[in-house]
């Protein structure tokens, strides 16, 4: 099963190498990993999507915890959370097909960010399912290039995965 981990780490050089090295060394499968800074400048947050059963997840958790630069890990899979991913897709669309592509874009609330003579580049945000569906709908036109950011996620309501205490 897939798990979504929100991992707070010290914003130190090399921390990504430590985490990536751990996953490769221990044979854990990363689905995606997105990293960026947070509300506090000395803390970065990684959203890691990991594939594995409970035992694997337990090891992922514990092994990550052993890294001195890892401050806090939250497995938010079972919680209510908002998750988003951004995709850029460059798709074949000569002028005759553009209308159709734009209609699809509308359905998914995607935006056109660039136009070439024979291609259209679209930007779409959403959760995993939506992005996959968007990709599938464009596939018939011929996808020339596709890039995804990996998922980022945040708990809903008053719950936090940050360093502060939970509650209002």
């Amino acid at each position: 099963m897939r798990h979504t981990l929100a991992v707070l780490v010290e914003n130190n050089p090399g921390v990504l190498a430590r985490v990536a090295g751990l996953f490769s060394r221990r044979g854990f499968n990363i689905d995606s990993l997105a990293v960026g800074r947070t509300e506090s400048p000395d803390v970065s947050r990684m959203t890691i999507v990991v594939e594995g059963d409970e035992r694997v997840l337990e090891q992922v958790n514990k092994q990550l915890h052993k890294l001195v630069d890892v401050i806090k890990i939250n497995d938010i899979t079972a919680d209510e959370y908002v998750d988003r991913e951004l995709v850029l897709i460059k798709v074949n669309a000569d002028p005759a097909q553009r209308g159709e592509v734009m209609q699809i874009a509308d359905v998914f609330r995607a935006r056109i960010v660039d136009l070439g003579r024979k291609t259209v580049t679209l930007e779409c945000t959403g959760n995993d399912g939506k992005i996959n569906a968007f990709e599938e709908s464009l596939r018939p036109y011929g996808i020339k290039e596709l890039v995804r950011t990996g998922k980022i996620a945040m708990l809903r309501g008053t719950k936090y995965t940050g360093l502060q205490e939970n509650g209002d």
């Binding site: 050089p13 090399g14 190498a17 430590r18 090295g21 060394r25 052993k66 890294l67 001195v68 630069d69």
Partner: peptide, 14 residues
Amino acid sequence: ITGITIPVTKHNYL
């Protein structure tokens, strides 16, 4: 050496 020893140290510093 910090890169090399990531897998074999509890922690390391440059």
